[in-house]
Design a protein around this nucleic acid. Structure first.
Lengths: 219, 219
DNA sequence: TTTCTTATCCCCATAAATGGGGAGTTAAAT
DNA sequence: ATTTAACTCCCCATTTATGGGGATAAGAAA
């Protein structure tokens, strides 16, 4: 009687995607209409999408989930989005909500939660993993946080897109010459980014940068 | 007529596990007999296992795939193991082979490759993702490497107490001169520890060391 | 006892990172 | 139209890090 819920997946790991498809296929009224392996693909897809729900991994190379959500917000694209994350990070959840995400599930959670999340978000609710709910409770009961006073100074506006790219590569143990080659820019430029990153993040060296990246879940 | 191939999965992301189960369930003669979510669980399971194949994620918190393989080798446990990795890293592949792994597939590859890998490894062959094969070819054609001269000795044991001390200080953004002063030893010694740490952990630089420390909850 | 591990130190050399300066182009915002 | 932000590139110099080799003393393990 009712239409199937159309879902689009975005994750850089194809195995995970095919796994989720297999899981979702056990559900009668949910249909995976396609998937994207990179942030860029998601953005292209989004231009002419008729899907109901997007399940979006935040950890993708180059253009990650955060950037995708920002793009949506900027362009006024309204797609109900469920974040799929490797980590339970309240900061990230807050940022995602501010960027218009409708749900947040951890990759640690059981796969049936994906089904639950899709159904909930499709019917207009929000959905969170139990693990992340626990984390949230701690914050919102312990200290009361004004939801309007959301983190204005997220990494994304502290660091530029390019700086984040460089930071990610640094965190993946790449040297400046390597990063220069990967990004197709000169080593001088990479070194400039390193300097700016050190200043902006207020850490001492590359190790500090990597730790910063870990702490802020940008790797 | 023939017995089903019994497979055990090990990955800290339950969603990925359930996804792989769903994929494998489409295969008639392969059966997932269980799964482990941590390295410790794998080791416990391995004591009384009757499975034919273990599919092992290398990136697990605390006790990762490398340590699991080392444990197997030490205890003489013989389980055909397929490594499931997020990265295409030749160094890692070499290390895994030296530790007795029988296959190496990337999470980026399509899920049917898991099926192929299971079948290949079960029949005594080795299996590698195409992406990693390309990488390997580059190495083994460019420079000829004696397969017997595999990094057996380079990646030996766990870290010593002193090495861990140094690793902690590195992860706290200290430089070698600083560490030398803190520990009251010469900088030469600190540098020796750095070298040993790089070898033992098989990472490229200090950033890699810091990440290793994070992954293994040393910091 | 002999071997192995750990902790300590040194030499050499090269590669990489850090820290300061300046500067051009483009695109967006005011 | 002018300013600003982001991205790009270069000079200089110094400090750190990496990679190879070797070495010694104390203590544990075989």
């Amino acid at each position: 009687m009712e239409e199937k819920i159309k879902v689009h997946l975005a994750d850089d790991h194809k195995i995970l995607i095919e796994g989720i498809i297999a899981v979702i296929n056990t559900e009668e009224n949910i249909l995976v209409e396609g998937y994207s392996l990179t942030g860029k693909e998601v953005i292209e897809w989004a231009q002419n999408s008729t899907a109901d729900i997007l399940i979006l991994d935040i950890n993708m190379p180059e253009l990650d989930g955060i950037e995708v959500l920002k793009f949506f917000k900027k362009k006024g694209i309204k797609i109900k989005t469920i974040i799929l994350s490797s980590y339970d990070d309240v900061k990230l959840v807050e940022e995602m909500l501010a960027l218009g995400a409708n749900g947040y599930i951890s990759k640690d959670s059981a796969s049936e939660h994906i089904i639950d999340a899709i159904k909930a978000v499709h019917s207009g609710e929000q959905f969170f993993s139990n693990s992340i709910k626990d984390e949230l409770l701690k914050i919102f009961t312990g200290k009361k946080v004004d939801p309007k006073k959301r983190p204005e100074s997220t990494i994304s506006n502290l660091l530029t897109a390019r700086e984040i790219e460089v930071l990610k590569l640094i965190s993946k143990e790449h040297s400046s010459p390597e990063i220069a080659e990967i990004l197709n820019i000169s080593q001088s430029t990479v070194d400039t980014y390193r300097k700016n990153l050190l200043k902006k993040t207020n850490v001492k060296n590359s190790v500090g940068l990597a730790m910063y990246a870990v702490k802020n879940k940008i790797v």
